[in-house]
Design a binder for these strands. Structure first.
Lengths: 213, 213
DNA sequence: CAAAGAAGTAACCAGTTAGTGCGTTAAGTG
DNA sequence: CACTTAACGCACTAACTGGTTACTTCTTTG
């Protein structure tokens, strides 16, 4: 039997994976400082000792969770294959993707927030991240150039600024949805509200980038 | 003597104020969960008992710090007196103000992030907030209407969406400056980078709102 | 000036938390 | 089957943390 599919009483990989999933939830819910190692162990139905066995300590566990989160979103982005679409459509697809991803993976936002509260000290130690983002920035840069050649995008737009802006208008809305709903006396998470926001975001970026928006 | 200005060995108001200032710093630095009451007491050069005497408990202290932070930014906004400017200039002034305020008061962003991590449960209990924001949303709504009448703004823009977007493009850049600087291999906090970002933000909003951007 | 009340302090407590020492049990291997 | 290796679990601890008790000192006021 090449791959063992039957449930084993002992399975290092499965335990490791359960711990990682539990850690992601707990860190996302409470932040690095607020997360409890015992809680992670309980959620993972693993013994706390195993966490230290596989991951060393709480901080290293957090770093690995974070690396995985970044890897996941970039992998999903790769699958969009924006190169095969006209620039304008590709840009809109990227905006929609970013929004949908944040919406379906709320832990991502909370993890990044937590990492920034700690001045990115875990990401600094990471070696996997560099490579990951080189490709990403390159992709958006290429998209912008292609749009200019097609005669639909304005020239001279900085891909980094555009990237940040596309992320910002979705990220901020979602990360601040709780205070926002109180402050603006509106349920920002109602389905219509979400649709409305996505439409507004597409309009914002299209007007910024396109010659004829 | 009506107002006592000389330094007293005992001064309830001064101690209260020192505790609040220290709490704001500590909460901003470490979040609600990571903040330490002992650390707040040390920073404030007050005895820990005083914190409980004046503020009840850690959560209430956080709520009051948060209320104060919101009050401060709204008060600063009021002083802009945007009503006395042409709509277009008023809008640009609002964008600049928002950016500058976040830049000069980084605790504000961190406090709001922390509150959202806790699903805004402190803000929900607050009674002072409602009034504060009614006026603010009204102001931006009025600005938009005025711009339409002046023939410079597009009609039909939702003031809440615009508000959120103006905040988002500054807030996201600054709150994620640590991971951003690594990911984009650029010092996002260099003076030129900050100027560049502000200019980009103004362009983004002007293209979104104005008829002739 | 004496009494009362408020400001301020030190020491402490009970519960919690990240991290470990050490023994047990299952899975692979010859 | 015996033996080694690695997964797993219990029970512990040293340090920490929010909150409190019991007390002292200063300021105000009748």
């Amino acid at each position: 039997m090449a791959a063992n599919t039957q449930k084993k009483t002992r399975d290092a990989d499965a335990t490791r994976a359960r711990i990682l999933a539990a850690a992601k939830k707990e860190f996302a819910k409470s932040g690095l400082g607020g997360a409890r190692v015992d809680e992670i162990a309980d959620r993972a139905k693993a013994n706390k000792r195993m966490i230290y066995h596989y991951f060393g300590n709480k901080e290293d566990l957090f770093r690995i969770v974070l690396e995985e989160a970044y890897t996941d979103i970039r992998e999903a982005e790769q699958k969009l294959e924006l190169e095969h679409l006209p620039a304008r459509e590709a840009l809109e697809k990227l905006i929609r993707f970013t929004w949908d991803y944040y919406l379906k993976n709320p832990e991502f936002i909370t993890l990044v927030n937590s990492e920034n509260l700690h001045k990115a000290r875990h990401l600094k130690k990471s070696e996997k991240i560099d490579e990951l983002f080189r490709r990403f920035v390159g992709m958006v840069g290429g998209l912008l150039e292609r749009g200019v050649q097609e005669g639909v995008f304005r020239p001279g737009i900085d891909p980094v600024q555009l990237n940040i802006t596309i992320a910002a208008i979705g990220y901020y809305y979602l990360t601040n949805r709780f205070t926002g709903s109180i402050v603006f006396k509106r349920d920002l998470m109602a389905p219509e509200a979400l649709d409305e926001r996505l439409a507004f975001n597409i309009e914002t970026i299209m007007r910024l980038v396109c010659i004829n928006p």
